[in-house]
């Protein structure tokens, strides 16, 4: 398997006034294509920060991040926005659906940035809603759905553009066991059936077991251990 994500010697320092807050130090990480990787580690260790860098919503202080051949640290804001819309699917802990849009409209939203025809959009949206098992809830608003259902809408939104990489920041963190299990099974299916590369942060060892590879982050540095199953 070729390497999809190459994180090379990346450091991230936040500044609060004149105080430097070093979060990541010379971190390197490779994610092979088709991998389902779990990132674990204590709170504050820099997991979210690393995900933000990989997904191009934040920039490293130094180092390079190459994804499918593109060095994303070199893109300008507009290029980066376009790159994200084409390559990354996000799943957040708190779903982050737009409350005034229906499930269908939320899923359709990323397609507004594509040139797909109306018909193609409709096919895609209905297709992914079918995958996540919410075909009968398309016209419901987020507040009319359970947490697990909202997260499934969020997954549908994340995959509707057929992205290169799916990023999840504690996607089951806000869910009960049963819903979490459903979400994990869904992600497993995306990985196995649809060959999606997934990087997921989780605190839950059970969730990490679903992944094929687990990496531990400790104070901004990767521990080399646990290769999963």
């Amino acid at each position: 398997m070729s390497t999809l994500v190459q994180v090379n010697q990346v450091s991230k320092i936040y500044y609060r006034g004149t105080i430097e807050i070093p979060v990541l130090q010379n971190l390197s990480l490779d994610v092979p294509e088709g991998e389902f990787m779990a990132l674990m580690g204590p709170s504050g260790s820099g997991k979210t920060t690393l995900l933000n860098l990989i997904s191009g919503i934040d920039r490293p202080t130094s180092g390079s991040i190459v994804i499918a051949g593109t060095d994303i640290a070199k893109l300008n804001e507009t290029q980066l926005a376009k790159w994200r819309s084409q390559n990354i699917g996000f799943i957040f802990q708190f779903y982050n659906l737009i409350p005034v849009l229906t499930a269908y409209e939320n899923v359709e939203l990323p397609l507004e940035l594509t040139n797909l025809s109306k018909k193609e959009k409709k096919q895609r949206v209905e297709g992914v809603l079918n995958i996540v098992g919410l075909s009968d809830r398309m016209d419901h608003y987020p507040k009319q759905l359970s947490g697990g259902q909202q997260q499934r809408v969020a997954i549908a939104r994340a995959i509707v553009t057929d992205p290169t990489l799916i990023i999840g920041d504690e996607p089951t963190g806000d869910l009960d066991r049963k819903s979490a299990e459903e979400i994990l099974n869904l992600m497993d299916r995306l990985n196995k059936e649809f060959k999606k590369t997934i990087v997921m942060v989780t605190h839950d060892p059970h969730a990490a077991q679903k992944a094929h590879l687990t990496r531990h982050l400790e104070k901004g540095e990767l521990m080399i251990n646990g290769d999963g199953k």
């Binding site: 997904s55 919503i57 804001e77 507009t78 926005a81 376009k82 994200r84 819309s85 084409q86 996000f90 957040f92 982050n96 737009i98 409350p99 939203l109 990323p110 507004e112 940035l113 939104r157």
Partner: peptide, 13 residues
């Protein structure tokens, strides 16, 4: 603000 951040994440400018 959070919604706008989500829109930007999705690639909206």
């Amino acid at each position: 603000i959070r919604e706008y951040a989500v829109l930007k994440t999705l690639g909206f400018t």
